[in-house]
Design a protein around this nucleic acid. Structure first.
Lengths: 218, 218
DNA sequence: CGCTTAAGGTAGCGAACGCTACCTTTCCTA
DNA sequence: TAGGAAAGGTAGCGTTCGCTACCTTAAGCG
């Protein structure tokens, strides 16, 4: 989780119940500040005011503003990963026919992303401004991608590509990227449509099915 | 291009040749600074040093740091739009069969994005941190999307969707988003693969063809 | 309860940053 | 070639921001 090369971006874990609550308030305040003041407005003072906490309480857990942002970012990623693991461990998917499985996986991907909409909008969006987050981002997104790919790969025999694993990974990479972009950037990026609605999910699912399986009816 | 509501983010146009060159240096310096110091490092002093220019020379054209970033952003968008228009006006595409047309459109989309790789990496990536850019972003991306969609729609009769225009727009929205993500975030986001290579282009083209036209051989 | 340590608040230092008043140099036009 | 406008430089003001020294309060434990 942490690199020896980086200065010291680790979080000193809170030991008592009170400080755990305080730290949770700080992380949530971080998201809130990013949400309505952007990365420019993400100052120590702003986070402290939002969390009703003094700067020292903040520097008791973290070593710098950089480390604070990283903590906010990774806390959200952990939430996404938790949801993703619940999905990957769900035995219901084994019963589905390939096309239904692919559609279901896309739908779940989107619904998980939507459940973390506020975080994706506020944090992931501006995370590119943060050098260390950019360095680490690949691991997290890769882990998330593998999880979805793993479930879909139970249908590997009917995937119409020479390398099914690569095809599934590529496909869900695109699905995830498209969804994130859509949610995080909203209508602002590369898509004329305003929201993530049923049509979007159906469309994305259909694209995945056609790409992985060719034409399938039903 | 500018809103009455916003404070004053317009750029005072340079009148003499010398100041045009200076301004070009400033815009380029802005990209360079964002490239290797991130949004945090995008300070007036840093841009001035990079461009070998005094702060006053900068404030002669622009009114604030916010306006400077907006100018850097929009300068790059203009470059993308120029390339896109060249593509849209190219008569060669009318001769292609539908599947080849879709593949060509995808390839051109990617190649245009690649030609502006440095800008996409440095600027678009962190543009989400900028409130006004987020407000305006939709127009530009929409305009870019329409351009590509327009060319492909000459094949509207063979597009296997009830609403061909919507399908094409949706499709190229995804193509564009995937490409940008891939280039801007590099390996860091939602895709385990490291770069934009021929395989990526072929894959993306195939996805588009299968989505829009169903299975087509050759 | 009494001792130790963790947690949190107050107040403010030092540095960096956005921006500008003031002045000099370069360019355009008559 | 003189006059005025545009362009650019020097130096520094006022503010904000990241961070910390110092002190008070709360929690855990025998």
């Amino acid at each position: 989780m942490d690199d020896a090369s980086a200065p010291d971006l680790a979080v000193r874990p809170p030991l008592q119940r009170r400080s755990r609550e305080t730290w949770a308030r700080v992380l949530d305040a971080g998201v809130a500040v990013l949400e309505d003041r952007g990365y420019d407005g993400f100052t120590i003072a702003a986070v402290c005011e939002q969390a009703q906490v003094a700067p020292t309480a903040l520097y008791a857990r973290t070593t710098s503003k950089d480390a604070l942002f990283l903590a906010v970012y990774e806390h959200g990623i952990a939430g996404l990963q938790a949801d993703q693991e619940v999905f990957a461990d769900d035995a219901r998917w084994t019963a589905l026919a390939p096309a239904q499985l692919v559609r279901a996986a896309v739908a779940v991907t989107v619904s998980i992303a939507l459940r973390h909409e506020r975080y994706l909008r506020a944090v992931v969006l501006v995370s590119a401004s943060h050098v260390e987050v950019r360095r680490r981002g690949s691991r997290y997104s890769q882990a998330l991608g593998e999880g979805f790919a793993g479930v879909v790969l139970q249908a590997r025999d009917v995937i119409r590509h020479e390398d099914p694993e690569a095809a599934v990974r590529s496909c869900f990479g695109t699905v995830f990227a498209t969804t994130i972009i859509r949610i995080a950037y909203g209508p602002a990026f590369a898509t004329p449509m305003p929201v993530v609605d049923d049509e979007f999910v159906a469309d994305l699912g259909e694209t995945a099915v056609r790409y992985l399986l060719g034409d399938v009816v039903g």
